[in-house]
Nucleic acid binder design. Structure first.
Ligand SMILES: NC(=O)c1ccc[n+]([C@@H]2O[C@H](COP(=O)([O-])OP(=O)(O)OC[C@H]3O[C@@H](n4cnc5c(N)ncnc54)[C@H](O)[C@@H]3O)[C@@H](O)[C@H]2O)c1
Ligand SMILES: NC(=O)c1ccc[n+]([C@@H]2O[C@H](COP(=O)([O-])OP(=O)(O)OC[C@H]3O[C@@H](n4cnc5c(N)ncnc54)[C@H](O)[C@@H]3O)[C@@H](O)[C@H]2O)c1
Lengths: 204, 204
DNA sequence: CCTTGCTTGTGAATGTGAACGCAAGCACGA
DNA sequence: TCGTGCTTGCGTTCACATTCACAAGCAAGG
């Protein structure tokens, strides 16, 4: 498949479509048209059609998109058809909330390990995981984990990331308020909630 | 001022610049060039220059951008030069983490109220705020609050938003995994961490 | 089997943002 | 006071993304 010319923006929207189709499935809908879906998601029908068409023809003309099979297709595209294991680094307030957040599981993610450097946290249990010592981070090499979620203070992030880079980590969701330097083979998504809120007063 | 033709993408980056300039100030730097800043932030120098130039000429040729005054300028543009009050709805795990997160204060935000509908949470104290009953949400009308942070389950979000719309709320940071229908006068930023993680396996 | 109605898929056009390259111009030193 | 070197500001070019409009084509019903 030629994924080369698919817009980044389209990839960013795919999880949203997946979530929508998963929800439609639980509602026992058989199919949905691009215009109905667009209304639900607050976007335009042509955008949805174009996005989905990059990956092939999923829909049926005159009818719409079949819910079950389209969901499966998107899952396959995003490689979410197999369980993706992730390691959580930082068992603080935000880390604990994430560890118990069911939203990751609904995308097929499994938070398979938690690390921290605080001795009082190491050994305690959060959800199904026991917090491990960050000094032993390289044990994830043999555990088939290629994603990381970072919920540690910004000034501690870069050294931890350097360590993760040596541990087969390919993708990082960074919740610290800082830019991370990584080799090109690693994809980083950084989100700082305060920064996102920072744009809103401008518009009022 | 003619803000009409300023790209949305530029506005999205302004908080990042503000954070960088604030940090430079604590490091006692007097000025920084676009290329040095670009390296810190992982972006290109021309992008930074173009972004800042939309709002006027902040820099000094041959030298760079003066740290203190540029920070003040950006703060003014984003309307973060005055304390912006925000209401937090949802005092669960994520809500509690947010309430105690100092990152908002560093942008000049003040989480001035917390609401929930769980009787066991109403009346308890989180940080400096006492959790109030969501039924009394309209009391924020008289408290000069125009921003809201939503940390409640997705299926409860829309009715709460409808209520907020009647309470002078102009901007919403939505952490629920759903699209919100709002009047055009309200700006919504939705972030679902699971969805953000959802794009990463595609690239590996 | 054919007709009708509806919705997809898609090339072309439009719009928007990023990158580039250079002239303008400030600071500093001679 | 004048020349030099560096960095900004900005017009232009290029790349990417969204929107549009319509032909293609499936389903259903007569
Ligand atoms: N709390 C929020 O709502 C919120 C929102 C947005 C972003 N953030 C960011 O997320 C990060 C965590 O926030 P938090 O509220 O959970 O903070 P926290 O202080 O409660 O937790 C941080 C955790 O990281 C651990 N830690 C520190 N250095 C470490 C290291 N080198 N290796 C491993 N673990 C280490 C600490 O022991 C602690 O358990 C911060 O960067 C913060 O800026 C938090
Ligand atoms: N926990 C995470 O890491 C995380 C990450 C991303 C997104 N989210 C989203 O954030 C939201 C909250 O997550 P959480 O982990 O804090 O859940 P939670 O169940 O711990 O907390 C939800 C809180 O909302 C309150 N609530 C429910 N309905 C309400 C209503 N109508 N009005 C006012 N309050 C109401 C509940 O009483 C509870 O205190 C969810 O939508 C979740 O999908 C959570």
């Amino acid at each position: 498949m030629n994924y080369q010319k698919i817009p980044d923006e389209t990839i960013k929207r795919m999880p949203m479509y997946l979530r929508a189709f998963s929800m439609l499935k639980t509602e026992n809908r058989d199919s949905i048209s691009s215009s109905q879906l667009a209304e639900r998601l607050g976007m335009s029908p042509p955008q949805i059609r174009k996005d989905l068409s990059y990956f092939g023809a999923f829909g049926t003309r005159g009818v719409g998109y079949p819910v079950a099979s389209t969901a499966d297709q998107i899952r396959g595209i995003l490689k979410l058809d197999v369980t993706q294991k992730a390691v959580l680094v930082g068992a603080g307030r935000l880390g604990a909330a994430i560890a118990e957040y069911p939203g990751f599981a609904s995308f097929g993610f499994d938070i398979a390990a938690i690390f921290d450097n605080d001795p009082s946290k190491i050994g305690t249990k959060i959800g199904k995981n026991v917090v491990e010592d960050i000094a032993k981070i390289d044990t994830i090499k043999s555990r088939d984990i290629h994603l990381a979620i970072l919920a540690i203070p910004a000034d501690a992030a870069q050294p931890v990331v350097d360590g993760l880079a040596d541990c087969c980590i390919k993708g990082i969701l960074n919740l610290s308020a800082c830019h991370l330097a990584v080799p090109k083979s690693i994809k980083v998504v950084t989100i700082d909630l305060a920064m996102e809120l920072g744009t809103l007063p401008y518009y009022m």
